[in-house]
C-alpha cells in the first residue's frame, strides 16, 4: 500500500517528543493516519500532536489488541475492552479526545459507552459531584437555598 521502505512499520511521535514504532496495520486503525498513509503524505515519522506519550501508548495498546484478536473470540475482546476502559476519569477524557482526534472508531465507541454507563442511573447531585467537580458543601448549600426557595408559598 505504502511505498515506505520501513517494511510496513511506522513511527508515531507524540506531542512530548516520544516515538513509538508500530506496524502499519495497527496504525491505520486510526482513520486520520490511514488517510495520511493513503495520500502518501506521510514520511516514516508521523507526528501526533495533542496526544502525549502516555495516552498514545494506551491507544496503541488498544489498537494492537484489536488487530491481533480479529480472529479471536469476540467475548475475549469484550473483556479486554471493559478492562481497558476501566480507568480514572482524567485518562478517560484524554483518551476520548485522542480517539476522536485520531478517529479510532472502536475505541471511541467503547470509551463513550463506558462514560454513559457511569452516568446512567445517577441523580443530579451525584453527577455534579462525580463529573462536574462540585464539592459536597456546594451541593449542600445550593440545595439548602433551593429548598428555601421552593418552600415559599406562591399563592
Amino acid at each position: 500500500m505504502s511505498s515506505s521502505l520501513e517494511k510496513n512499520m511506522l513511527i508515531l511521535r507524540s506531542s512530548d517528543g516520544e516515538e513509538f514504532i508500530v506496524p502499519e496495520v495497527v496504525a491505520v486503525m486510526s482513520k486520520a493516519i490511514k488517510n495520511m498513509v493513503e495520500d502518501e503524505c506521510a514520511s516514516n515519522t508521523i507526528p501526533v500532536p495533542n496526544v502525549d506519550a502516555n495516552i498514545l501508548a494506551m491507544v496503541i495498546e488498544f489498537c494492537k489488541k484489536h488487530d491481533e484478536s480479529e480472529a479471536e473470540a469476540a467475548s475475549d475482546l469484550k473483556t479486554f475492552d471493559s478492562e481497558f476502559v476501566n480507568r480514572g476519569q482524567e485518562a478517560l477524557y484524554d483518551l476520548i479526545t485522542a480517539a476522536n482526534f485520531r478517529d479510532v472508531k472502536e475505541l471511541l465507541d467503547a470509551l463513550c459507552q463506558n462514560v454513559a454507563e457511569m452516568i446512567k442511573g445517577k441523580s443530579v447531585h451525584h453527577i455534579r459531584i462525580q463529573f462536574l467537580g462540585y464539592q459536597l458543601f456546594e451541593i449542600l448549600t445550593s440545595n439548602f437555598i433551593w429548598n428555601i426557595w421552593c418552600d415559599r408559598d406562591f399563592d
Partner: peptide, 27 residues
C-alpha cells in the same frame, strides 16, 4: 477531571445519545 474536558461535540453525539430518559433529564 470534569466532563467538560471532553469536546462538546463528542459529548453530544457519542455520550448523551447513549443515556436513557431519566439520566438524560438529570444530566
Amino acid at each position: 477531571t470534569t466532563i467538560s474536558a471532553v469536546h462538546p461535540d463528542i459529548l453530544q453525539t457519542h455520550i448523551l445519545t447513549r443515556l436513557d430518559g431519566p439520566t438524560l433529564a438529570s444530566a
